[in-house]
Amino acid sequence: MFRILRAALGALLIAGAATAVQAADSITGAGATFPAPVYAKWAEMYKAQTGAGLNYQSIGSGGGIRQITANTVDFGATDKPLKPDDLATNGFIQFPTVVGGVVPVVNLPGVKSGQIRLTGAQIADIYRGVIKKWNDPLLVRTNPGMTLPNLPITVVHRSDGSGTTFIFTTYLALKAAHWASDVGANDSVSWPVGLGGKGNEGVAAFVKQTPGAIGYVEYAYATLNNLTYTQVQNKAGKFVSPTAAAFAAAAAGAKWNAAPGFYLLLVEQPAPDAWPISGATFILLHTNQAKGKAVLAFFDWAYKNGDAAAAQLAYVPLPAAVKEQVRKLAWSKLK
């Protein structure tokens, strides 16, 4: 009995010591699930090159913000940038890491990727339940020459709170006054119609199983799974396809200079080739903290060496000019 107890106690002590050593060695972060795969990949490469470890827990943006506020992690990660006021109150630095975005996907018999063209107002009307059929005259207008089927539209949205939903609803609120007043923009909203799938895979599964369905997923998920996407009209009036170049165009064309704290949503960017429903994902850290330097060393390394790995996972790296601005405007604030 005593022997078991002693063994258990010993094991506990060893485990405790091990975690303490680990905590001293590596930096810890928590937050958004969307960039988790690329942060994990970067951490693995960083460890191989420098020996310094990084432990990232993808607990969701809300959790990431709460944990960095409570100072239990070295950095937080969020898909929904904090407003400059909130940054100032908490003493946070905020900067973007990679760009992604939201892609409408459809299930229409015989329709291939990029064949259907939609405007933001049309998507808003579909998601409000105003446009109910695919052969609605409003949809025919932007798709001349296409024979749109007489199918009811099934709307699919995310059921879980998500940065993807935040970017998507922000875009709809910007494009349609009705959406802004009736529904609004948030990481989960009160959807007027449709059904909710859990995560990108849940939305994709419902869309695949329902002829006539439309849903929205992250760009990376749509690309890696070859989903049927639509073209969307951007601010310049051009119908664009969701490609890495279109996301990069949105990020490059954005006025980061004029956005204090990098509080910038990449929706409806003016660049002629920009994908209109883009967004960056962000890092939060305290201006005054012990491991701030180590955190920035990691992201500096990632900015320099991580682009290829990010692109492989279908994330869009930040344009070089934006990285330079981050170094100059955000990282210089660390004490």
């Binding site: 929904k80 059921s159 709170g161 940065g163 989960s188």
Partner: peptide, 30 residues
């Protein structure tokens, strides 16, 4: 279940349960 927060109107309508709502929204509730 389909995860919509109203009262379900039929057998095939989507609905939500208490546990599913918490699981869906807790992580990102800011």
């Amino acid at each position: 279940i389909g995860n919509s927060h109203g009262f379900p109107k039929s057998m095939f309508d989507s609905g939500s349960t208490i546990a599913s709502t918490i699981a869906n929204e807790f992580t990102e509730a800011s």
